[in-house]
Amino acid sequence: MTNTEAEDEESIDTHAVTEPLRVGVVGGGFIGTTVGGQFREHDDARVAALVDVDETTLEVAGAELDVDADARYTEYETMLEAEPLDAVLIGTPHTLHYEQVLAAIDRDLHVLCDKPLTTDLERARELVELDREREEVLMVGYQRHLYEGFRRARELWATEGREPSWITAEVGQDWVDRFEGTWRRDPALSGGGYLYDTGSHLLDCVLWSTGLTPEAVSASMNFVDDERRVDGRATVTIRFTNGATASFSMSGEVPCMREHVRMWDREGAVALDSRDWESSEYVEIDADSGEYRPRMRTEDRQTKADAFVEAISTGSEPPATALDGLRVTAVTEAAYESARGDGSFVAVAPDNVSR
């Protein structure tokens, strides 16, 4: 072996020996245990600490994630001060995200934050600016960025000469009855209703797949509370700067989950359909040659933890960025403003949504 070969082999070995990413899980509910479980099973990560305000949840989730009793906390700041972490997974109610992301940024930690990034436009803009100034990863938990169907749609609309002009999207589930009495129907914690919960994913997948820039938003909503803060159904229209329109219909008052998205231009369309939270089926429609249904490799799809660790280890951009989160918050806040008013179009400032 030459000296150069020996030096190359030593370099490779040195880079291969890395410590697992030490992740602190914030919130022991569905996101904390599901995505936290992905970190627990990951070769290059481990759940080092857990925080939840509820003692019972803390005990159950701690056992499920194999977190030692002395690394379980009821206060977020205490965990950050006590534990030598590399990253945090934030799976708490929506309105808590901003303060928790900000505290992690202040400590130079990588952050995987469940959607939405925030429920406040100015705060979302602040996090985007902070994210641009640092090297650590801030990823938002919009999982459709990992689905092959939406990735294919994004590639198609990035093709020269292709740009959607008419978009329809709908999603429904048994949300209103299922989450009665929970934080999801408490606007102090959720920031709104069905639009800020499952509806957030639908807005995001269209914005991300098309790459279009929203210009104005109009909405009507059926509110389930007297204060008109929690919507059970929402109809949202987005006008884009290229003249395209997107119509969204979202209902939390139907018996089962279904999602349907159609994006058309002059040559054809893409159609994406999902049921019961499975990966979306994908069809390309050509005006001349008919339909094309490629085989979807769902078994190869990255988990959120996979994508997050990869972005950190390679220094690459995560699948869903803080700017993606800002774009969704800007549209969502405009929709609530329109629906609580007279339904007129509300302008979306370019600096909130431009890439």
Rank of each mutant, 00 (worst) to 15 (best):
G24H: 02
I12T: 14
W264M: 06
D186I: 14
Q38C: 06
S200V: 12
R125T: 07
A219I: 03
M1Q: 14
G181K: 06
S279W: 05
T210Y: 00
Y76C: 13
D288P: 01
L58G: 05
D86N: 07
R46W: 03
T241L: 06
Y142D: 11
V53D: 06
V217K: 00
G325N: 05
M139C: 10
G192Q: 12
F308M: 13
N222I: 14
R297T: 12
A216C: 07
T332M: 04
P116F: 01
V17R: 07
Y194C: 00
E253P: 02
P93Y: 05
C256V: 11
D226L: 12
W166G: 09
T34M: 11
A216P: 01
F248L: 11
F150R: 04
S313Y: 07
R178N: 15
G181T: 00
E148L: 00
E278G: 05
V137T: 14
A169R: 03
E122A: 15
E81R: 10
D43V: 14
R340G: 04
K115P: 02
V331K: 13
Q38W: 00
E227M: 10
D70Y: 02
P255F: 13
R40C: 11
V137E: 00
R134A: 13
E215R: 10
V176S: 11
V309Q: 03
A339C: 08
D300V: 10
F345P: 02
L326Y: 01
V176T: 12
A311D: 12
